[in-house]
Design a protein around this nucleic acid. Structure first.
Lengths: 339, 339
DNA sequence: CCGCTATCGGAAATCGTTTTCCAAAACAAT
DNA sequence: ATTGTTTTGGAAAACGATTTCCGATAGCGG
């Protein structure tokens, strides 16, 4: 293994000088720089980041916590986008990313998790979609060892940052659009899990709409799942004009149930997953740019690690209408490489 | 930061003794162990893996290369399973995983990639579904710096390992099952990308079937996509009895096209992705246990890193028939946690 | 009771960087 | 020429573990 020492010898300078050149320190003459760079090239020297991390006490290692557990395959697409956004930005900012799934944490004691992260020299955390009262999250916040950026979760403390879209406004918007387009006069709202942060916000949005429009709103909680949505739709859909769902997967369940019942009710969802194109009918939904959100989260974490103050960032969203043909075309565009 | 030195002082032993206890070396008395462990607990000591890596020259860092590029969202599910399998096994084996998407490599020169991996002290690579002639893969193999395990790709060299299912046999099996169930006498085969390794193997499988059964086989290549499959089906399906597809996504495109044409042809796919439940009709397909394959790959890489010889591992597969109701129930089972 | 062999614990070198501190060199001002 | 100031480069001390090597102690048989 060729080390900085060899480079120094080859260039005829001291080790410290090589280090300075490598890290763009001032007070190195152009001539010396040239000598060093030439030696680096000749020896094909690659700095050892482990040694650098030890010496500088800056590991640059960051963990990405993903919540896989809740809605099966639909969430794979979202998580992949989160990951892609996170990782590419992290590489650009020279951070290492260790990915952790919540399922890996389930069997571990919280102390074990903290110990694991600490032993890995992880100093920053990006946490996607975990509820505030999640015990793991609580512990990580309490541990004080990490800078934290949460995505789609409430702000945890003053030294952390949070990134989200305005869930209430988005739910309000998509529901209102669907209501107006169909001249509806009442709403069935499938709200998903009770007590969740995101679900709570979305509920507020549809409630505000119902109040403003002075129309009846029937709210049903349940699991965040397609089957639950199906069952609730079979039971309640006839009584209301439109079905607003807190997630796309539920919207698909609702839409399929309606088709089986052979009655028509407009349905809208939330998230903009590709699966919406396979639901059988077009639906309105809210699309977030998960990749960009993730990228933003990494940037924010870097800022925190560099000593910045915690803050809140609100991202925008977009109302879309998803249909099979669009999915087909979009998939076609991506079709490169291969096995 | 409390270090091994502090532990040694607290326990009243030498640093090296603490290290021995921590790493389960022999020749340490029970009594000493107890003292050390107590000190560790009292000081809440967490070993610094960076220092350990530097000192032992074993980084334990491994990169996971994923091919996102080819078939859009369908592949998200597979990749997530690969990742989940990889990461949990890696944690168990005390390896760190850095995830890399092929899209991140596209703009980089190959040397840059190697330099990046080397600077990260990455010593092992797990590569999922990249073709043998992929330039990046070639370079990584050539670099000699890494132990490599490939999944669903041909063996690259003697010091690497490869894991796969018998693609030809699987394709043969699922096509034969579909043929027999429907008393078919001819096959349209949508083969996907020409020249790919996996697609080549699958083609062999269906060719063998056609020869054995002495029935006509029409092979059409094209992109590995839903839209291509749709177009080819619209054009050729009428001429043959069953449509065999080299991937589920193509099978879905074919099935949807058939439904639009209002003619019936049995279709079978390959992979067992959830989306199959949304295709409109049940289809046979081949299910691989991606999570277990990934887990196996990590184990194999660990073996290579520990000095083991390269080898080939063949995993098994399963023929399944996918329908919407099963997907619904499976999703329900997973529904825990939440946002 | 002596000496030999296991067993155990400790001192110190090492891994490859960063970073501090200092000396030498270069330059400027008087 | 002398002094003072700025650049520039080098020596050496961290960083926190692992690991080698060796000395001390204990155990044992004769």
């Amino acid at each position: 293994m060729v080390s900085i020492k060899d480079v120094a010898k080859q260039a005829g300078v001291a080790i410290s000088t090589v280090s300075k050149v490598l890290n763009n320190y001032p007070n190195v003459s152009e001539e010396t720089k040239k000598k060093v760079n030439q030696a680096v090239a000749e020896l094909n020297f690659v700095p050892n980041s482990v040694a650098a991390a030890l010496s500088s006490k800056q590991s640059g290692r960051v963990a990405l916590l993903l919540n896989l557990g809740n809605v099966s395959q639909a969430v794979d697409e979202i998580n992949m986008q989160y990951m892609a956004g996170t990782i590419s930005r992290a590489v650009a900012l020279n951070l290492d990313v260790i990915t952790i799934f919540d399922s890996m944490l389930k069997n571990k004691s919280l102390d074990e998790v903290v110990r694991y992260l600490r032993s890995q020299s992880i100093t920053g955390l990006i946490i996607f979609g975990m509820s505030k009262d999640d015990k793991v999250l609580q512990k990580l916040i309490g541990a004080q060892f990490f800078k934290i950026v949460t995505v789609d979760a409430p702000l945890v403390n003053a030294s952390s940052s949070a990134i989200w879209i305005d869930q209430a406004a988005a739910q309000y918007d998509v529901a209102k659009k669907t209501l107006k387009e169909n001249k509806g006069k009442s709403i069935l709202y499938l709200a998903g899990k009770k007590n969740g942060y995101v679900t709570g916000e979305r509920l507020k949005g549809v409630q505000r709409l119902a109040e403003e429009e002075e129309i009846p709103l029937l709210v049903r909680n349940g699991a965040f799942s397609e089957l639950q949505a199906r069952n609730l739709t079979l039971r309640y859909a006839k009584k209301k004009d439109i079905v607003v769902c807190a997630s796309d997967l539920m919207a698909i369940g609702a839409m399929r149930a309606l088709m089986d019942m052979d009655i028509f009710r407009p349905v809208c969802g939330f998230d903009g997953i590709t699966l919406m194109g396979y639901a059988g009918k077009q639906m309105n939904t809210v699309r977030q740019n998960f990749e960009r959100i993730a990228s933003e989260a990494v940037g924010e974490l870097k800022r925190l690690l560099d000593g910045g103050e915690g803050r809140q960032i609100v991202m925008d969203y977009e109302l879309v209408r998803m249909k099979y043909e669009d999915i087909l075309m979009a998939a076609q565009d991506k079709n490169t490489g291969g096995i």
